[in-house]
Design a protein around this nucleic acid. Structure first.
Lengths: 304, 304, 304
DNA sequence: ATAGGTTTTGTCAAGCTTTTGTACAT
DNA sequence: ATGTACAAAAGCTTGACAAAACCTAT
């Protein structure tokens, strides 16, 4: 993010870059107020990169047949509306940390276009796995913490969740098709955070699995019935709190006899897993999915 | 959606765009009230994009033989009735045919932003398989035909190929990972059209396969060496002309003994396939990939 | 690199390294305070490596059109903000060489997941420009040489090209949009190596240009027609061998009259460029694109 | 459609100041 | 090495001008 004046161009350089004479630049400043350059000690005009962008927008409008006065006004209006940020900040911020920051900012500000654009860029430059592991999941963790400390409004939490869910849904599209082994994913009863599970499913599908997704707050009875019917090669159950699994050990053990069972999330402990005859996933969702080899039907994934 | 006055055209520009003299525009305003442009400080008329749309509708009516007065009235009535949204709604909601048309138009006009936006919309609303099968591959076929008849410039062909290849590459990213069976894809020696093969690989990956892509114009010796090393579960070779496979039967037979071999493309005939001990793919690339079940190692894919 | 300052350059050496006269160095010290060299017993100025870095940053700003005073201030500001570590950290983390090696290995082994992951890491830690200039382009050069000496199979060459093209295409996405000047890129007739040109386009777009890409093997007639239609602010044509441009001088000259023309690649010589009225790009693609200032419409890029 | 008046907008000039690389003297 | 001097290049401001574009009314 450019602090104050990322670049301090003088009028000659600006004129050269834009192909507009210095006289005209001064005239536009005087007549339409498109520019308000700060001044060097000696009085020289010093233009910022923002100024340059604004003039380019104005030139684009001119090329489309607008009058100079209207083109200037339109260029300024765009800026006020926030359209201008695209060119500049997107070009400058780069790399995972910068883009992750941009995403967080956009989500915090409830700025959907900016958030979508940032995700577009992330997915254009990096693989899905990297984006999920290094950007989306860390953001979700942070959001959860801020939530617990009351440092985030309900609106923000909803907005971010829905937007990210939309993107994940998109990546998930078609994950039930194909010929790979089948996994069944569900959140424990009472558990509402299913985004990490969604991410897990997306990556799992990308390694060749078919995914059947039951989502948040799934009663064990339902899960068991489905498992009995479909006989998946893997069932994954997540819980963020140990409480969600309290008193379910017997039920889980019964489920684990139907299909290989894996527990994940902060609420899943080695003790619970052992008691239920399930395997425990401790890595982050992306890594866990990547390491999930094709299980041999009949054996638990723990054997791998 | 443009806020107030998305564009502020002056009478000269509007006249140029519509091919109607300025005098006439003023007359229509005075006599029929088709236009009520807002004014610049100095009194100049400033027209909006809506005004332009309205005049186009009026022109359409004129071309159909209406009198000027009637045409103006009709254009205004349409607006009052809400039909005016046509122009706009056409941009908003469209099915496969409309979007396919929009894509073709954008590619023919070398308009990258429009083409990318159309692809974005297609992929947002439909599955990858649908977009490839019903839009991209048909377009490529048509492009090939126009090319043969000299009805398309090299520039257009290059532009469209490069752009579509970019999107396909994006969908292909990561197709080598996972634990599914492995497929090796290549074009016959001399064969340069690899876009359908790319599409095939993309869909194949989405059904759980790992893909190793060798691309256009691959010498059989190289393909055979790689196959011997990697022992893929499937090798697919494409050719658009039968000539590309001339005299290669023996070599193909040797390759087919190393790994299950499939021939595809207009150049692959049942005879060649039979002679080489290969299987023949006749469906379109997307369907072919979808129907490709996991082959049992050792047996040819034809057995399925 | 040690951060203290054991490296004690005297003004002559510093002047030689930077290509800046001793007088100017002293003037900059006096006028802008960019330097505060410690003194040898005899009064000689002794500069540290930090001083050299700072001056290089200042020179970079100067090359971008800033005034000396502003360039000095910016260089100092960067240091205060901690951006200065860039130069240093790049040298400290053995990142680039190690990752470049990992990439080469992965590509040689046809290992797509590893190659993608390495590229993810490179792009996460470094700018696109750095990754292209210091990793991708050198690899392509090396690949070309190994190719000529028959030390690489077609399969490897295809695999690496396709994978890198995929990443470049992604970085290129949307390069046709924006408000900047427009460049048209193409390879000479018969020329098939378009990856460096793609990289050039990517960087060019990131400096604000719009790019229209015609790709490999473009007939001059098509290029000329498109140029006549679109009137771009720059046309870049590349050729790896002088043979590709043989006998095209007249045609090139005609093209150069339509739009500013630049020739690039090993096949482009000063003689050919001069004869055609074109400008010659000798730097690597990334540097060339970075140095391509915004051209004044109507004037050739040669004026710069 | 023409005529006569107004607005817009790019361009230029004159006179003066600031910036900055280089040179000279100590 | 230091400090002063200098001159070319680049800028600033005010004011004015003229071609192009546009207006109204006949």
């Amino acid at each position: 993010m450019p602090r104050e004046s990322p670049a301090a161009l003088r009028i000659g350089e600006l004129s050269r870059r834009l192909g507009v004479s210095e006289h005209v630049l001064r005239a536009w400043e005087r007549r339409y107020g498109v520019l308000q350059p700060r001044r060097a000690p000696g009085g020289y005009r010093l233009y910022s990169a923002l100024d340059e962008d604004r003039l380019r927008r104005m030139q684009a409008h001119l090329a489309h047949g607008m009058s100079a006065a209207e083109a200037a006004r339109a260029a300024l209006d765009q800026e006020a509306a926030g359209d201008a940020l695209d060119t500049d900040s997107n070009r400058r911020r780069q790399g995972i940390p910068g883009l992750a920051g941009a995403l967080r900012h956009a989500l915090d500000e409830l700025d959907e276009p900016a958030a979508q654009a940032t995700l577009d860029r992330l997915l254009a430059e990096f693989t899905v796995e990297t984006v999920l592991r290094d950007v989306v999941l860390p953001y979700l963790r942070e959001l959860g913490q801020r939530w617990q400390h009351g440092r985030v409004t309900v609106a923000t939490e909803h907005f971010a969740s829905n937007l990210l869910r939309g993107r994940l849904d998109n990546l998930a599209r078609g994950w039930g098709r194909g010929y790979g082994p089948q996994a069944m994913l569900a959140c424990a009863p009472g558990e509402l955070h299913d985004l990490p599970l969604l991410a897990f499913g997306v990556v799992l599908h990308r390694t060749g699995w078919r995914v059947r997704y039951l989502g948040a707050d799934t009663p064990l009875a339902d899960l068991t019935r489905s498992a009995a019917e479909l006989r998946p090669d893997l069932v994954v159950l997540t819980a963020t709190t140990a409480r969600r699994l309290d008193g379910l050990t017997d039920h889980l053990a019964r489920l684990a006899r139907l299909a290989p069972l894996a527990l994940a999330g902060a609420g899943a402990t080695a003790t619970t897993a052992a008691a239920a005859g399930a395997c425990l996933l401790t890595d982050d969702p992306v890594t866990a999915a990547e390491q999930m080899a094709h299980p041999t039907p009949g054996r638990g994934p723990a054997d791998t």
